[in-house]
Every structure is written in structure tokens, then in C-alpha cells.
């Protein structure tokens, strides 16, 4: 796969090189790791709700929801290496920065230029770089995919809705209670 690299990205790129590129390695990811990843994401989302006490997370909330969702999309594939909540903001920002290489150069950088430096200094799992680059090799497809996703969620199929309700008791009570 050929991916365009920027000079400033070289170091990060080299750090990620050869760590988690092998698709066979990805295929070996265990369910427990997946669950750990998902739990981490959930933890992040819950933490984002309590931004008043955390100025860094407050900044993160400025990130566009679509970018956050797309970053999660990429991040969930490899997040087992990222277990500390403090690394997630940087992960998201980095994902977006790299994503911008496949989109319009400088666009995301302009949007997030006020992200605090401490966040940018946080370590990021090298696996994520490769995953994000792979994900956004088809960046425009991802955007169209996002549009389709909205339509899908606005008008979910009955069986999906029913399945979802089984895992969200509060909502079920609200509807049927």
C-alpha cells in the first residue's frame, strides 16, 4: 500500500512501521482484547460527559462529532494497545491529523490548532497510525459511509432496533413502560 507521508509525520510513521501491519496479526486479535477496547471507548465517552472538571477534555469536545466517530471507527480496530484514558485525546487528534492527509491538506490542522500542547505530547500506540492510515486510504468512502450510516440509524431495521433494545434497558422502559 502506498501512502503519502509528510515530513513531520515521518517519525511517527517510522515508529509504527512494522509493528502491526501484518493482517494475520490483526486476525489473531482476541475477543477479550476487543472487549477491552470497547470498554476503553465507553470510558472515554463517559469521561467526555464530565468535561467541566477537565480542561483538556473540554478542548476535545470541540472536535467535530463526525471526526470523533470516524476516529473511533479506526481506533476500535487496534485500541488494545491504548489502555490509559489520558492517551485517547491524543489518539483522536492524531487520527484526525493523519486523516487530513487523505482529505484536504491543512483543513483539520486549522480546525484543531488550539489543541493544548500537553495533549500533543502524549504517547500514542504505534499500531494506531497504521490502522488510521489504512482506514483513511479510502477517506472519501468513509465520509460517504458516514452519510449512509446516518440514514441507517435514522431508519433502523426492526430487528436491529429490537436487538439494540435488549442491551439498553432504560430505553426499553421508556418506550414500553
Amino acid at each position: 500500500m502506498m501512502v503519502q507521508k509528510e515530513e513531520g509525520q515521518n517519525e511517527a510513521w517510522e515508529a509504527g512501521k512494522g509493528t502491526s501491519v501484518d493482517p494475520r496479526l490483526e486476525a489473531k486479535m482476541s475477543v477479550s482484547k476487543k472487549l477491552a477496547s470497547a470498554a476503553t471507548v465507553r470510558e472515554v465517552i463517559n469521561s467526555l460527559k464530565q468535561t467541566s472538571k477537565n480542561p483538556h477534555l473540554k478542548k476535545i469536545l470541540k472536535l467535530q462529532a463526525s471526526n470523533f466517530a470516524l476516529s473511533l471507527l479506526a481506533g476500535l480496530e487496534v485500541l488494545p494497545g491504548v489502555t490509559k484514558i489520558s492517551t485517547l485525546p491524543k489518539v483522536v487528534i492524531t487520527a484526525i491529523e493523519i486523516a487530513s492527509k487523505g482529505g484536504k491538506k491543512g483543513y483539520f490542522a486549522d480546525l484543531y490548532k488550539d489543541v493544548p500542547k500537553p495533549l500533543k505530547a502524549l504517547p500514542v500506540a504505534p499500531e494506531l497510525y497504521q490502522s488510521v492510515v489504512n482506514q483513511f486510504k479510502t477517506y472519501k468512502e468513509a465520509l460517504n459511509f458516514g452519510k449512509d450510516a446516518i440514514n441507517k440509524f435514522v431508519h433502523p431495521q426492526a430487528n436491529i432496533q429490537a436487538a439494540r433494545l435488549l442491551f439498553t434497558p432504560q430505553r426499553r422502559e421508556k418506550i414500553y413502560g
Binding site: 472487549l35 470497547a38 470498554a39 465507553r42 446516518i150 442491551f167
Partner: peptide, 21 residues
């Protein structure tokens, strides 16, 4: 656990629907 996360996936997009769109 996994079901809850995947169900939350729907909620997340639903809650942020306007911004995402």
C-alpha cells in the same frame, strides 16, 4: 458487555446525528 457497546454505537450516532450530518 459487547452487546451494550454495540448498542451504544447506535446511541452515539443518534445523539450526534445533526452534528455528524
Amino acid at each position: 458487555e459487547l452487546g451494550s457497546v454495540l448498542a451504544y454505537e447506535y446511541e452515539f450516532i443518534e445523539k450526534n446525528q445533526k452534528a455528524i450530518e
